[in-house]
Design a binder for these strands. Structure first.
Lengths: 208, 208
DNA sequence: CAACATACCGACCGGTCGGTCTGTACGCTA
DNA sequence: TAGCGTACAGACCGACCGGTCGGTATGTTG
């Protein structure tokens, strides 16, 4: 008795995986239904059996992306640190550790998809949920770290959490432009520096 | 005697303008040559008279984008401030002022294009030049502001200049996801706060 | 066993794609 | 006026697009 979940039919998840790979590589519009079927090793009949349209697949792929990355971050070690600020910095360390392989292997499906397809409301909404939902998982640690610093800050935890995602998304674009992960490492570095000043109690700063 | 440059044929610039509008609205792959011709009010013959291929138009559109935005920022007022830090903050003010109209009217053509077409090397290079070239125009002011603060900083002016562009590009993605400019304003706000701490002499911070 | 559902398969459809090609209108030079 | 180069115009091409549809193999249920 294996421990697989009450798995959905195989063709469906093969198509979701193919969509994730191909859209991250070449974008949504440039990926045809035939491409997806070939990559997934299924027929066109199977495609339209599981998804009503190409757009519906995009929405499901974005939801699947949320689920997969959600699980990855939920189960990661960075939550184990005692101090909230340490949890946030450990999250950034993890993001940096994830930068392996080709550019299309570490960039964000939701960011890529929404840039192209924000005109389609269902796709836009699924991508927004993916990006902002992930940002929301950082909010409580950031709020706690801000509170620990004990100073009234003009920035909110929500805004700061979203900012971390904006920096990552923007760094991914520079990475695509340069063909290299270096800009993402730099972006994370600036984020670390910014958060360090925000998380440092002002007492410590005025009396070093 | 008007002061127009030895202007290129009209169909060419109409196509460049159409490409800028349509690609920012719907992306590159989703914009067809026929769409471009219709929007520009020219025939398909005219299109392939001026551009060898759709990809070549994309490259030329990216170069044209560099030229247009380059002129806009070169001639802007923010250069007039005496203190380097003020010039940098005034640049951010200008970026915020530019956030008018629909999302596709303030987002970056080069960022949109490279996200989709980074697989095509000529397009990738033209977009990289546009984004990184613009970042480079900020470098000397940032370097000066850093020097004025008089502290050895661990960040370089180049890295910081590129970071400003990464933040903007990432904020554009959140803006597309939300359908609103608000995330860009927030991103610029965080940038202002980060730069403020970097540009503040440590003497001032340790003795407030 | 019949009756029905699910999960495909792949030929096929009308339409659109990027790109080609022939033709032509116009300006310049000689 | 002839001859030539540039700037189009738009019919046309084969490949490919997203999507449909009739069919089949394999359960499951009564």
């Amino acid at each position: 008795m294996t421990s697989t979940l009450p798995s959905p039919p195989d063709a469906r998840s093969a198509l979701l995986g193919a969509a994730t790979r191909l859209i991250r590589e070449r974008g949504y519009a440039a990926t045809s239904v035939n491409d997806l079927c070939r990559e997934a090793g299924v027929s066109k009949g199977a495609f339209f059996h599981h998804f009503a349209s190409k757009d519906e697949l995009a929405v499901e792929a974005a939801k699947n992306w949320s689920a997969v990355t959600g699980a990855l971050f939920r189960e990661a070690d960075y939550h184990l640190h005692e101090r909230a600020a340490d949890r946030v910095f450990a999250y950034l360390d993890l993001r940096e550790d994830l930068l392996a392989g080709a550019v299309s292997e570490f960039t964000c499906l939701a960011g890529t998809l929404v840039q192209e397809a924000h005109g389609e409301d269902a796709i836009r909404a699924a991508c927004a949920e993916s990006i902002l939902g992930h940002a929301a998982t950082l909010e409580s640690d950031i709020a706690q770290a801000l509170a620990d610093a004990g100073v009234p800050h003009s920035v909110t935890a929500q805004s700061l959490a979203r900012h971390t995602q904006a920096v990552l998304q923007g760094a991914f674009i520079l990475a695509k432009a340069e063909g290299d992960a270096a800009p993402v490492r730099e972006g994370i570095g600036h984020l670390r520096q910014y958060l360090t000043t925000l998380f440092t109690p002002s007492a410590e700063r005025s009396a070093p």
